[in-house]
Amino acid sequence: MSDHAHPLDLNTDLVEALLVRFLRAEAGKFGFERVVLGLSGGIDSAVSAALAARAFGPANVLGVMMPYTTSSSASEADARTVAAALGIRLDKVEIGAMADGYLATTPDTDRLRRGNVMARCRMIVLYDRSVVERALVLGTSNKTELLLGYSTQFGDAACALNPLGDLYKHQVVQLARHLGLPRVVIDKPPTADLFEGQTDEGELGFSYAQADAILFALVDERRTLDEVVGLGHARPLVERIVARMAANQYKRQPPLVAKLGERTVTHDFRYLRDWGR
């Protein structure tokens, strides 16, 4: 398929300009010129890092590798390749002792709980590093993940700025090519790398290509469920994706506040984060 044949293809020059503008403006308003992000060796964090390197200069971007004891060594090698290609600073913090310290106190954890603990350990590391670095934590969740809720609340989803949040996975891949990222991170199957052999698509039970097409039709084009089925997608899959979106809306929202007074935080105390900036 040629680059211009896909309906989700972007003008990558324009997207880069908009996202670089976004990063500089929103960090600058709060007096920040540096960012820190988790560098997993995957495509999303690589694209976030590349955009940050363009926005702030490579020396002002710190990528942190945070392997758990079971993390694949190939992921680390890929993260190193990305950091070297971009010229950003790189650090490594093993989260094994940190995560196991807690996990040892609760013997019967399943895979999901263990994955969430790891994701939240990484969040703690990044937010702590951000203080030392006087940097903002940069997010790496793309639109497909955000809509599907395929992330850990207060874990990998936690960040100050997220340049990828309005890009579907297909568009992240397209942007990765445009930004000249190493082929190895573009071509490998996406994985959260929380356990051996894990892939996103294996865990989700459908492909990113399917999810992107269905989500784009529903969310961006505002087609009805029946119309999306009419485009040729299997009804059970469309229904599953709609249910996932709704079930995970809580992850995309601040916590609910019980309303009592006239003006209540999150309800009708209506100010942007950029208030006064």
């Binding site: 211009h4 972007l10 003008n11 324009l14 997207v15 908009l18």
Partner: peptide, 12 residues
């Protein structure tokens, strides 16, 4: 606000 950056659109 700038919206829409599909391939083939030189400006938003």
């Amino acid at each position: 606000p700038a919206r829409g950056a599909a391939a083939g659109e030189p400006i938003p």
